[in-house]
Each structure stands twice: as C-alpha cells, then as structure tokens.
C-alpha cells in the first residue's frame, strides 16, 4: 500500500505543505508554482511504495524531493508560460507580512537562500544540508557564512533602531 493514504493525506499536507512552499520560494523566488510542486511531491508519496524509518527520514525525503521538483520546474522551457497560467488561475500562496529580512534573503543566490532556510528554520546541520543539496559540507558552510555577512548589517541597523527608540522613551 502507498505510504500516503486516505487516513493521513490531510495530516501530511498540514505537516509539510508550508515547508514545501518555503523551500519552493527559496529555490524559485516565486510562490506561483508552489502548489504544483506541492502536488508533485505528494503525488510521488501517493504513488510510491515508501517505508521511512522515522519522521525525520520522511521529512528529509520530502525536502530532497521538493528541491528536485523545483529543479525540474526550472529546467522546463515552459517556465515563464506556466507562471502566467498560474496567475490566470489565481494560484498564489499567502505572504502574511512584508519582511525586510526576507527581501534581503531573496537577493542572495539560490543555494544560499535554501541553506539559510534549512539551517536556521528547519535546524539541519551543514552535513545534512550538504546531503540534501548534493554539495560538500564546506560549501554549505561557505553559503551560510556569506549569507550571514549580507544579513548582519540589516540586523545591526534594526538593533540600533531599537536601542535609539528605547533611549528616547
């Protein structure tokens, strides 16, 4: 029987769809195709005969499959056309608020963005991220280090602003 079935479909979608969306956004800089990627990933779970040792293995598989699905989407020559179609159908994910930090993260190269997300949000180590992205661990360390350098001034500015407003009050 497939790993995903009528009893756990909702549970799996609730557990992983936002993560798939965020990884898709990190990879593609757009949420327009995230729902398609989400469907692709879950369809693989639906049609494959998987046995995961643990929830951690399940999650790692979903992350790798999402990254691969994003690569497949980028490879297709219909990328731009599909984006237009998605917009026409009104598929879009929710961005609940503007985030200056997110804007800066999105100026970083794709692998930096994805590594930052997986490390800081999902809590994966550089070795684990290396396996997921098929890159050496020291490359991931470099991505994170360079990413931090770019993000640091923003955080310092925010910190200064906070301090000065506290002093004023």
């Amino acid at each position: 029987m497939p790993y995903m079935n009528s009893h756990n479909v909702q549970q799996l979608v609730n557990r992983y769809s936002d993560m798939i969306l965020r990884i898709s956004f990190m990879q593609l800089k757009s949420t327009d195709d995230a729902e398609d990627i989400c469907q692709d990933v879950f369809m693989k779970l639906l049609t494959g005969d998987f046995q995961f040792e643990s929830e951690a293995h399940e999650k790692a598989w979903i992350i790798r499959t999402t990254i691969n699905a994003c690569r497949d989407h980028m490879r297709t020559s219909f990328w731009k056309r599909a984006t237009v179609l998605d917009e026409a159908y009104g598929i879009h994910a929710t961005m609940q608020q503007d985030s200056e930090l997110l804007e800066i993260i999105m100026t970083l190269p794709k692998n930096y963005r994805t590594s930052i997300y997986l490390h800081y949000y999902e809590g994966y180590s550089v070795n684990e991220i290396g396996t997921m992205l098929n890159k050496p661990a020291n490359t991931i360390s470099a991505y994170l280090s360079r990413g931090r350098k770019k993000l640091r001034p923003l955080l310092e500015d925010a910190y200064d602003l906070q301090c000065s407003s506290l002093e004023r009050s």
Binding site: M43, A93, T94, M95, L101
Partner: peptide, 24 residues
C-alpha cells in the same frame, strides 16, 4: 528573525483544502 520571516510564508487554509481535495 528568519523564523519570523519564514512563518509569514504559508498556504491559506483554502489552499491546503484544495491540495487535499485534489490528492484525495
């Protein structure tokens, strides 16, 4: 800061409902 920023990116309940319905 990153967690807060990333939390803002999410599917709406209706998006999730549609994904579940399509898969089902």
């Amino acid at each position: 800061e990153i967690i807060e920023s990333m939390d803002a990116i999410c599917f709406s309940p209706s998006d999730k409902k549609r994904i579940v319905a399509n898969l089902t």
